[in-house]
Amino acid sequence: MAYQPKPPEGWLKTNFKYYKHSGSWAWILHRITGLGLTAYIYIHIYALTSLTQGPKAFDDEMKIFSSPIFRVLEWLLFSLVLYHAFNGVRIVLVDWANGARYHKQILTVVYSLGVILFIGMGVLMLTHGPAIVPSGK
């Protein structure tokens, strides 16, 4: 019998219907966090151009970034950094070492280390930042 190609289906359908293991989620998260971080580099580079406009421009900008909402966003940004960094190491171990044998155990380490450093950074930001005052004061 001749080969019968399956009817074409949408990109979304193909991507959402197959069962996802922990590794597929790791892969999806790696791409989403990667795109997010790349977008953030652009914002970061643009934001820091205020350094060339003297102390007032920079300090005024930093005042905005020190408001509670931006500090929480900054903290959440660190979760993207941690996940992408540690899962990146996991990818290198799978590619270049014998990581494929242990990739699920390594993933547990990725998530655990990430959560620990994320909480650690939260403590650091709270204790080494200016007192949180509602913006506008």
Partner: peptide, 18 residues
């Protein structure tokens, strides 16, 4: 990046003042 984050984003006095 992780070092950068601890120095620049984690500590207000080293990261956020001109």
């Amino acid at each position: 990046v992780i070092a950068h984050f601890f120095v620049m984003h984690g500590n207000y006095s080293s990261g956020h003042t001109y």
